[in-house]
Design a protein around this nucleic acid. Sequence first.
DNA 1: TCCCAATTATGATATTGGTCATATTAGGTT
DNA 2: AACCTAATATGACCAATATCATAATTGGGA
Lengths: 225, 225
Amino acid sequence: MSKCEQCIIKQFNALKSLSKDELVRISNCRTSITIKKGEVIFEEGEILNGIYCVREGICKLSKLSSNGKDQIVKIVVKGDLLGQRSMVSDEVSNLQATALNDMEVCFIPKSEIIFDLQKNPKFSFDVLKEMAKDLREADNIIVNMAQKSVRQRLAETLIYIHNSFGTNPDGTLSVLLSREDLANIVGTAIESAIRVISQFKKENLISTKGKHIKIDDLIGLSRVV
Amino acid sequence: MSKCEQCIIKQFNALKSLSKDELVRISNCRTSITIKKGEVIFEEGEILNGIYCVREGICKLSKLSSNGKDQIVKIVVKGDLLGQRSMVSDEVSNLQATALNDMEVCFIPKSEIIFDLQKNPKFSFDVLKEMAKDLREADNIIVNMAQKSVRQRLAETLIYIHNSFGTNPDGTLSVLLSREDLANIVGTAIESAIRVISQFKKENLISTKGKHIKIDDLIGLSRVV
DNA sequence: TCCCAATTATGATATTGGTCATATTAGGTT
DNA sequence: AACCTAATATGACCAATATCATAATTGGGA
């Protein structure tokens, strides 16, 4: 098990702003966890006792609506932190985290993180920056949900996944989502999502191989948005 | 013009975490601004040179969608800060702020705020907490937008305004919004918003006097959500 | 390799909500 | 007080999307 101070993953998140000493301290009380695809990391309403640093794999953050549907509000990937919001506001989690892949994460106890947040202004400013970015993205999603069609939102989602998380060697999106997960990001019924995907195929904007999706015409897809 | 260190408004936001000395310093370089109803405080894409502390009045934070409609993502009231997100992430504003009332705000230059954010961990942790709360609310709005009907979202909006901002002596909502603003919060067409309002009236859940809205049956309205 | 359950796909129909047209009303101005 | 404009309200219709039913396909396990 590698040590935090040598771990390259921290470069991608706020932990990079911790000093060598702080990293050593954290390294000593963290635990490394393996999570299988489909497993729930934490649920809505659960008290989080720390944050997770994602070393490998991908997960979704979702919230159950009163009508019984899950709405995915964020995809968290390798390098991201998980659970900071609940940590900061000292509340139970308002979201559920579910692994979309086999994952490897490091769990850092709350006390350590809070200590650094309160003592290291650089670290807390960095967390603040990440949260500001999340908030900005959330605002954009609100506008899209309220004002754009399912067709537009799905196009946007595919482009977002393409640009943010990249593609496999064969050109398919590297983040593999079920049609249901896609529908739950877009905020629509599974059937509607599938129908739009079929339509995009007919228009030669994308192609599919099983559940894998490949964007064939990024420019064309961008014109949909 | 009262001094920051004596101003009671700061109790409602992160500025309460600043020391006496820091408040005196800020007090010396702030400017007090009066904004008339309907005036734009800052626009999308504008570089913000500081943050605003709302001493009096209410404003909306909105974003223009590509289809030409404004989506309101937050209502900011007396006691709130305005513009922290852009400040922290050092980006142009992604939202427009428009006064819904005559307002009085204090403008605090960016350099002062950034200085305190980087030197005073208590202050930056407080700002972090506020942003975490905003993010949580934004996630809830995303879920509502994606999964609930216009009827449900409008009921929820009315209840939110009722609970968060209170009522006038006659029982009407103290935050007076046009039907258009309500529609832009809910994310629907003006006509649809008006139709649902009419329906709520028929069901004796609310009553209206001009553009003033009064919730007559909070329990009943809660059942709509 | 075959099979089965889960997922993906498509059709038919119902419902919601958007758009356009047109009244009606409120509130400010002369 | 009368007027005028903007806001509110309502009707008719249409497009987008949800729902229910059912078929086709996929991929993992025996």
